[in-house]
Simulated scan of single mutants.
Amino acid sequence: MASIGVIYPRLTAFGGAEAVCLTIVDALRTEHDVELITATPPRTRELSTELVGTEFTLNYRELDVDVTVPGRVTNLLGTVSGNNFDLVTKSLFIRRVRAIAPEYDLLVSVRDDVSLPQPTLQYVHTPRLALLAAGRRVSHPDRSEKSTVRRIYNHICTTLAGHNPPSVHNDVLLTNSDWTRSLTREFYGPDVDIRTVYPPVTLSEFNPVQWDRRENGFVTIGRVCPSKRTLRTIKIVSELRDRGFDTHLHVIGTVGDSPYADSVYDVAAERDFVSLEGEVKRATLVELLTTHRYGIHGKEREPFGMSVVEMVGAGMIPFVPSGAGPAEILDGEDALIYDSLEDAVTLAEAVLENPDVQASLRSSLPDPNKNYGPDRFKTSVAEAVEELV
C-alpha cells in the first residue's frame, strides 16, 4: 500500500474535471492510502454521489496558500491584463505542493501540467503551464500572446509554479484526447511517456426515447460565454428555421452577468424558439438530451468535450466544430463536423431533411460506453500507478 497524494486545487464545483479527480480517488482508495491535497475544503459527499455515483469519505489536506506578498504585484498585472488572478493562486499552490512532495510515495496531479521533484502521474486536461511559458494562448494554442503585460504576468506565474519541462521525463502523463496528447508532446518532447486515456463519462442514467417520438429540436450545453460561441449556435438554428425547418434550441448552462450574456439574452428574447435554461438539475439535462434529436457543440479547440459524449449516449446526433476533442469523439464523421456557421447550417440541413441519413448516422456513431466508461478509466489509472510506485 502506497501513500498517494492527489493534487487538485479546488474541489468545490460540479464538472468534468471534478469527476475525473473523484474517479481517480475512487480507483485508488481501496489499494492505497489516498489523500487529496487541496487549497479549499472539498464538497466531498455531495460531489462524489453526483459525479461518481459512490459516496465515500475523502481524506484531504488543505494547504494554506498565502498570496499576500507576490499577489500585490501579480494581482495588479492580472487586473491590467484581464487575466484571472486565480492563476497566481494555483501557481503558489503548486509551489506549496513541491515543498511537501517528499512526504508521499507518489503524487497524482489531476488538472493541468506540473513540474514536481519526484516521479508523478499527471492527468492533463490542457498543458496550461507549458502554453503560458511558451508565450502561447490557452484558448488558441496555435497563437502567440501579443499582450506584453499578459506575457509578463504569465511568466511570473509559471516561474512561481516551478515550471521545468525536463523534470517530467520520469513522469507518466495521461491526456484526455489524442489532440491534447499531440499538443502536450509538442512541449515535453518525444521521450516523455504520454498516453491518451479518455475521461470517465457515466451514461447509465440515459434511457433514450425512440427516435420518432423525439422533438425535432437542438440542445447545446455550456456556460454562456464567447468561447462557447452561443450566439453562433443560435444563428445556426435560426437559419435552419429560415430554410423551412420547424426546430428549436435549448441552451443549458450558466448565463451569468456579462456584456456577452446580455447579448444572448437580447437575441433569445427576440426568438421564441430559443429557451435559455440556465443551470439545470442533472435529471432535467438527461430528459432534454434523451427527448431531442440533435445537439450542437460550439466551442472550438475543445480538448475533449464531455457533453458530446453525453449527447451520443443519449441517442442524439451532435454537430461539432472541426479539430480537437469533439471531432475525435465522433470518430471524424464528416457529415457532423463543421468549419464555419455556413458549413454547420449546410450539414444540419442535409441531415434534418433526410430520415435515411439520420438512421445511418445514428447507427454509425461510436459506442460511448466502450471508450468512456468509468471502469475502463479506473483500470488505466490503476495500471499507471502500479508502474510508478
Rank of each mutant, 00 (worst) to 15 (best):
K378F: 10
R136Y: 13
F245G: 09
E18F: 02
R136I: 11
Y153V: 12
G253P: 10
F218T: 15
G71W: 14
G332W: 02
K228I: 10
A335F: 07
E103M: 05
L132V: 06
I4G: 05
E383V: 00
V110W: 14
L336C: 07
D171M: 06
I100P: 02
R214F: 01
V219I: 11
S81C: 07
F85S: 11
V308Q: 05
R293I: 01
E186Q: 07
V308W: 09
R241G: 11
P199R: 04
L132K: 13
F304P: 05
D367C: 08
M316C: 05
Y188E: 02
S227I: 06
L11S: 08
R43Y: 06
T202E: 12
L129G: 07
T12C: 09
I252Q: 11
R293D: 00
T40Y: 08
T180N: 11
Y338T: 07
C157W: 03
L131P: 13
I221S: 04
L129I: 07
V312D: 06
G135M: 08
F56D: 10
I329Q: 03
S182G: 05
D178K: 07
C225S: 12
A261T: 06
I194M: 06
A314D: 02
L116R: 09
V172G: 04
E386V: 00
E270L: 08
I234T: 10
V267E: 10
T89N: 05
V251H: 09
A133H: 12
D142S: 12
R271S: 06
